[in-house]
Design a protein around this nucleic acid. Structure first.
Lengths: 144, 144
DNA sequence: TATTGTTATACTCTATAACTATA
DNA sequence: TATAGTTATAGAGTATAACAATA
């Protein structure tokens, strides 16, 4: 096939960040299939495990998910026996989300797999380059 | 609101790349609204302008779009008088996509705006950091 | 009056199967 | 037989409006 000139797009941060994200997510989907966890499930469950009692509102704010879209997501994780809802100790409107033992066991394995696949995808980057990349990406999306 | 521990997610390339891409795309959508160009329209039109006669197949391969999803996209740009279809000189199955004068005029402005908003979004990065970031992102998604 | 969680719903994006015309 | 382009359609992801319960 003839060569396509992508010079202009190659200089755009949005274009490259999206392509890189999709490349990583593609590998993520394949490697996490054994746990039946999509990226969004993994993110939610990781936050619940590391922040027992976190509320739906906190999950939405942290992950950029709209509240109506989180409802079926948490519902599915609850039906899988990975999340338990308990009344919030200080706010009667809110519900605290807690990881079950099964969730903690699952996420120990899933987080190890995530670390492995990251190393695999970033295999052509040195450890120093990876640290730099993560730092610069955060600088882009973390509004001061 | 109480602080949420995001330590684990913060170390993941996929998570950070996606957040950064979404942050840039958000600004892109706002600034490109005057041209009525979404990111995908911009990408397609940019490639057509810089590769007159490019085929749908080449666009799909380059941008990671599935052929059935490109059809209405190119159709809309054609109806807006930005793309013209001409028979491919050497392959009767294919169609060459060509930019109209209107498209070239529009993209001169749109590409200038894109460069501006990139500088705006990456405002907290030095020019050197931006070059490094783009290089490392390409290294992630360009399979050798 | 504002916020948490929820329902219903619409819209966009992405994916799959199958067809035609040409190579 | 394989490829370029297309149609129809299904599924996933994302968005807004409106409501009940509580602050």
């Amino acid at each position: 096939m003839e060569v396509v000139d992508t010079t202009f797009l190659d200089g755009l941060l949005g274009y490259n960040a999206r392509r890189a994200a999709l490349a990583v997510i593609e590998v993520f989907l394949a490697r996490m299939a054994v746990y039946a966890l999509r990226p969004v499930d993994f993110s939610v469950l990781s936050l619940v495990v590391h922040n027992a009692g976190i509320t739906s509102r906190q999950l939405c704010t942290t992950l950029g998910i709209l509240p109506p879209n989180l409802v079926p997501l948490v519902g599915a994780l609850e039906r899988r026996g990975l999340i338990e809802r308990k009344p919030h100790p200080r706010d009667g409107r809110a519900t605290g989300l807690h990881p079950t033992e099964a969730a903690q066991s699952l996420m120990r394995k899933a987080e190890r797999t995530a670390a492995e696949l990251e190393a695999e995808v970033g295999g052509r980057l040195t450890a120093s380059e990876m640290r730099t990349l993560l730092r610069l990406l955060r600088k882009v999306y973390q509004r001061p």
